[in-house]
Computed example of a mutant assay.
Amino acid sequence: MSARGGSVPKKAGCLGSSQEAGCAQKTQAVIELRQQHSLATLLKIAKLSRSTFYYQAKIQQGSDKYAALKAQIREVYERHKGCYGYRRITAELHNAGSGVNHKTVQRLIQLLGLRSLVRPKKYRSYRGEINSNVPNVLDRQFRADQPNQKWVTDVTEFNVRGDKLYLSPIMDLYNGEIVAYETRRTPQLPLVSNMLKRALSKLGDRQKPLLHSDSNTVDARCC
Rank of each mutant, 00 (worst) to 15 (best):
M1D: 02
A3R: 09
V8K: 07
P9F: 10
K10F: 00
A21E: 06
A24M: 12
Q25Y: 00
K26V: 04
Q28G: 13
Q36Y: 13
S38R: 15
A40C: 08
A46K: 12
A46G: 14
K47S: 07
L48E: 10
T52K: 14
A57P: 02
G62F: 12
D64A: 13
K65S: 12
Y66K: 08
A67F: 03
K70I: 05
Q72A: 08
H80F: 08
H80I: 00
H80P: 01
G82T: 09
C83Y: 03
Y84D: 04
G85C: 00
T90Y: 00
A91T: 09
N95L: 09
N101C: 10
H102Y: 13
K103Q: 10
V105R: 05
S116H: 00
L117T: 10
R119L: 07
Y123A: 08
R127W: 06
R127F: 05
I130S: 12
N131F: 00
V137K: 12
R143W: 06
Q146H: 15
P147V: 05
D154G: 09
F158Y: 09
R161F: 04
R161K: 05
D163S: 02
K164D: 04
K164V: 00
L165A: 12
S168R: 14
L173S: 05
N175F: 09
I178E: 06
T183K: 10
Q188S: 10
L191F: 11
N194V: 00
K197W: 02
R198D: 02
D205E: 14
R206C: 02
L210W: 01
V218P: 09
A220E: 07
A220G: 04
